[in-house]
Amino acid sequence: MNLHRRLPVTDEPAAADLSELDGRINDYNADRTGIRDARYLSIMLRSDEGELYAGLHGHSWGGCCEIKLLWVAEDRRGEGLGTRLLQSAEDEAIRRGCHLILLATRSFQAPGFYERHGFSPVATVHGYPAGHSEIFMVKYPPA
C-alpha cells in the first residue's frame, strides 16, 4: 500500500455513505459495550408545501440522548417552536429510559436558550470557530 497516495476527499458525501459509516460506528460501539439500543430521534416540521421550517435530530443510546441539530427558520422564531422541539425530544428521551441529555451549541447560537431549559454548560472549547466558542451542555431530566 502506498502511504503517500492521496486519499479521495469530498465536501459532498453521499447520504448512503454517511448512513453506512454511522451504522458501522454503532456496530463497533455495541460490540464493545454490549449496549444495542441505539436509535435516531428526529422531529421534522414541514409546511403544507413540504418546506422544512423547524427540526431536531439526535439519537439515544445507553441511557443517554444526544441532540445533534436543532433549527427553526428565521421567520418562525419567537413562536415557541424551539421549546416545543426540545420538550418533545426530552419527553421521548425519558420514554426511552435516558438519564441524561447532552448537546453542543456555539456561543453565537443558543446557549441562553438551552440554559433556560435546564441545560448546564460542562465544557467550552474557545476558538471554535475562530472568534467564538463551542459549548457542551448537559441536562439530567427527572425520571
Rank of each mutant, 00 (worst) to 15 (best):
R39E: 15
S60V: 15
I135H: 12
I43H: 05
I43Q: 01
H132K: 14
S19F: 03
D75W: 01
P141W: 09
H4G: 09
G118M: 09
T124A: 13
V9Q: 12
G34A: 04
Y140S: 12
W71L: 09
M44P: 00
S60L: 00
S88R: 14
G34E: 02
Y53W: 03
A89E: 03
S42G: 06
I101D: 01
R46G: 03
V9K: 08
A93L: 02
G127E: 14
D48I: 12
C65W: 09
L7W: 06
G80E: 08
L56C: 06
F119K: 05
E51R: 13
P111K: 02
P111V: 02
F119V: 03
L21P: 00
G63Q: 10
G63P: 11
P8K: 10
M137K: 10
L52M: 12
I94V: 15
A54D: 07
A93E: 06
V125S: 06
I25G: 00
S88L: 12
L7V: 10
F113C: 00
R77C: 02
G97R: 07
R32W: 02
I25M: 11
G23R: 15
E92A: 14
I67D: 00
G63C: 10
G34Y: 08
Y53P: 03
E20R: 14
D31Y: 02
I35T: 13
Y128A: 07
M44E: 14
T83S: 08
P13W: 07
E66C: 11
P141A: 12
Y140N: 12
G78F: 05
P121L: 04
W61L: 15
G58E: 01
S42H: 11
L85N: 06
A16P: 00
R96I: 00
N2I: 01
W71P: 04
Y28N: 07
V138C: 08
G55Y: 04
R32N: 06
G62T: 08
G50M: 05
Y128V: 11
A38Y: 13
E20L: 11
I25S: 00
D27K: 12
Y40P: 11
G80L: 07
V9S: 03
A89R: 01
T33P: 02
D22L: 11
G131D: 08
E20Q: 11
G78W: 03
S19Q: 14
P142K: 13
R6A: 15
R116H: 15
T10C: 08
L18M: 13
G58A: 03
V122I: 15
N26S: 13
I43N: 00
I35D: 10
D27S: 13
G63D: 12
A30R: 06
S19Y: 08
H4W: 04
